[in-house]
Design a protein around this nucleic acid. Structure first.
Lengths: 341, 341
DNA sequence: TTGTACGCGTTATCAG
DNA sequence: CTGATAACGCGTACAA
C-alpha cells in the first residue's frame, strides 16, 4: 500500500528520484540509492501497475483473443494458453484471455479501451474480418495462424504443410504407395480454416509430385465419425496401406474402426495422425504415430513476437512456421507384403 | 483516442457531466444527455480503462492463478479457462492468466501490484501456502478446489465424493458387488491433492456402509500405467466385476489392457470413469461410461463468486460443490452371470 | 441538474 | 545527479 510518495518522504528525496531508482531510468548516486532502497524495503513498497500504466501509456497487458462458443479446443490449446501466459510473465507482461464472438465490434471495444498494449489473435480464419479491425485500430498484434494472404502481417503458425510432406515421405520410405488422407468435414466452417485447407492441398500436391494417387476422405471431428470412415476407406480405397489423418478425434475412431473390421493396425494399415499431442496419442491402442503440434513453442513465439513489436525491436517481420515433431508410435509399419493372385 | 475531455468540449458540458452519463451515476437532463451521447457517438468515444481504474481503484481484472510447470491439464481445464473468461467478460471483468510456481512470494507480487481486484486460485492443495498469503494480502479471492479445512474460505469445487457414491450405487443397481477402485499414484504429490484423497476415502466409506469389500489400486496417470493396472487388477481381485476409475488417462489403458487379456468390457468387467469429459470418453472403444467433471459450471461459479465479493453482494458464503453428470457409455453393463463350479 | 477541482500513483520533461 | 511539476484519463465530493 506504500506509494512512491511514502518512499520519497522516508528517504528524504523527491518522488522523481525514487522513480529513477525503481526504473533505473537515470543515474543515481550510490548514497541516495541506498537510502531509497532501504526505505522501499522497510515499507514493503511495490510499484502500482495502474499508476504506471496511466503515466507511461503502457499497461504491459497482452490480450489473447480466442473465439467464444468455440467447438472444442484440443489439448494443444491448453499448452498454448499456459505457455503464452508463462512467456508473458517472464518478460514482464500479463496475458488476459479475451473471448470474442465473430462479431468484430468487440475487437474495437478492446483496442479502444486502452487496457491492452497488444493483441494475439487465435484461430485466424483464411479471410478474417477481425484482422482488418485490428489493422484499423493501430494496435500492435500478431496472428496465431495465417490469413489467406498474410502479406506483411506478423504471424506464428504451425507448419502443417511440412508435417504432411514428412508424413508422406516417412510412409513412402516404409514402402507405402497407396496413401490416403482423412481430414475434417467439408461443407462446414472448416472449409475456411487455414490448416485444413493448406494441408489438404499439400497432400494432393506432394502425392502428385511423387506420381502417386491421392485419395482424400473427410469426416466430422468425432471418434464415431472416424469409425465410420474406416468403412468408407475400405470401400473407396481397398488397396490402401496407409492413412494420414488430419483430424485428431477421428484418428482414434479410425484405428478402432479398422480393428473391428479385422484390419490390423499397423500390420495391414499404417496410420499417422497430424496435430495430436503425445499424451493423446498414447490413449489409442496401438499408440498412434504422430506429428505433434508444437503448442508450447507457438505460444512462446507468439508472445515474443508482439513484445518485440511493443518494445520497438524491429528485426525482420516475424512470420514463423513452427514444425511438428515426428513421434514414432505403434500405428505405423512397413507396407504389408501382398500375397495376392 | 477521444477522452472525456474531448467529449465534454464537443457537447459543451463539463467533464463531470460526461462521467455521469457514461456511468449513470447521477441524473442528467434528457437534453444534455442527448448532446453528450451524440458527441460520444461522433467522436467514437470509449472510456479509458486505465484512467477509470486509477480513479476508482478498481481495475475490473481478476487473476486466475494456475500452477506453472504443469503442462498436463485435462480437457476439463480448457473448458474451465474459457468458461471463466467468458463469464468474466459478460459481467464486465477481465480474466488474466497468472502462472505461479509453488513459490508463494509471487502471490504477494500480484496482490501488491494493484493490477487485480480479485483472485481465483486453481489446483488448491490440501494444505496450500498460497492461501495464507492471499488471506494476509486482504485481496478478495475464491478457491477452485478446497483446502483440508476450508473453514470460512469461499470455494467452488467438483463434487467428486458424490460422483463416487453415485458410481457405486449405479454399479450396485446393475448387480455388481465386487467393485474395485483405481486412482492416481500414491507416494507422490497427488497424496496431497484433495480430489484424490477425498474420493478415495469416500469410496472406502461407502463400500463399507454397503457391506462390500473395498479394493483400491493406484497407478500413474498414463494409459500405459492403466494397461499394466489391468494385470494387477486381475491378479489382486480375480472376482472383480467392475472398476471405478478416478484417473482419466489410466482409464483408457485399463480398458485396452483388459481387452487384450481377453476380458471383455463391459460383458466381463464394467468400467466407469470419474472426471472425464464426454469428448474424451468417446475416444475409447467401447466408449466409457463416465461422471463428467463440470468444468464450465465450475469456471462460471468461481468467477461469479469473486465478483459477488467485489461488488459487495454479501449473500451466504459461497461454498459450492458442483456435481458430476452421469453419462451412459458402453463400458458398463449388468454383472456377468457366473456359471462357475 | 451541472460545474469545479482535487486525487489516484506514476512517468517524463525541464531546470537547477 | 536531483527536484519541481505537469501530464495521464477519469471519479467524485463539494459547490453552485
Amino acid at each position: 500500500m506504500a506509494t512512491m510518495q511514502d518512499v520519497a518522504r522516508r528517504a528524504n528525496v523527491s518522488i522523481a528520484t525514487v522513480s529513477f531508482v525503481v526504473n533505473s531510468t537515470k543515474p543515481v548516486s550510490p548514497a541516495t540509492r541506498e537510502r531509497v532502497e532501504s526505505a522501499m524495503q522497510e515499507l514493503g513498497y511495490r510499484r502500482n501497475a495502474v499508476g504506471r500504466a496511466l503515466a507511461s501509456r503502457r499497461t504491459h497487458i497482452i490480450a489473447l483473443l480466442f473465439p467464444a462458443l468455440q467447438h472444442r479446443f484440443s489439448e494443444t490449446a491448453v499448452s498454448f494458453f499456459t505457455s503464452a501466459a508463462e512467456t508473458a510473465s517472464e518478460l514482464g507482461y500479463n496475458l488476459v484471455l479475451w473471448p470474442v464472438s465473430n462479431d468484430a465490434e468487440q475487437v474495437t471495444d478492446l483496442t479502444a479501451g486502452g487496457l491492452v498494449d497488444g493483441v494475439l489473435l487465435m484461430e485466424v480464419q483464411m479471410d478474417d474480418p477481425r484482422v482488418d479491425r485490428l489493422l484499423e485500430s493501430g494496435t500492435p498484434f500478431a496472428l496465431i495462424g495465417r490469413t489467406r494472404e498474410p502479406g506483411a502481417l506478423p504471424y506464428v503458425d504451425v507448419d502443417f504443410e511440412n508435417a504432411v510432406i514428412d508424413s508422406i515421405d516417412h510412409l513412402v520410405s516404409l514402402g507405402h504407395r497407396a496413401i490416403c488422407y482423412l481430414d475434417g468435414s467439408v461443407g462446414n466452417s472448416l472449409e475456411n480454416y487455414g490448416p485444413v485447407v493448406r494441408a489438404r492441398a499439400t497432400y494432393a500436391a506432394h502425392m502428385a509430385s511423387l506420381g502417386l494417387t491421392a485419395i482424400t476422405l473427410s469426416c466430422d471431428e468425432t471418434p464415431a465419425a472416424g469409425r465410420a470412415a474406416a468403412g468408407e476407406l475400405l470401400e473407396r480405397a481397398p488397396d490402401a496401406t496407409a492413412v494420414i489423418v488430419m483430424n485428431e478425434h477421428a484418428a482414434f475412431g479410425l484405428v478402432s474402426g479398422l480393428t473391428r473390421r479385422g484390419v490390423h493396425v499397423p500390420r495391414d494399415m499404417s496410420i499417422i495422425s497430424i496435430g495430436t499431442s503425445p499424451d493423446m496419442a498414447a490413449m489409442s491402442d496401438p499408440e498412434l504415430t504422430l506429428m505433434s503440434s508444437p503448442g508450447v513453442e507457438v505460444g512462446r513465439r507468439g508472445v515474443v513476437a508482439i513484445i518485440d513489436q511493443l518494445e520497438g525491436r524491429t528485426g525482420k517481420l516475424p512470420q514463423t512456421l513452427v514444425r511438428c515433431g515426428f513421434e514414432q508410435g505403434q500405428s505405423t509399419g512397413p507396407v504389408p507384403v501382398r500375397t495376392t493372385l
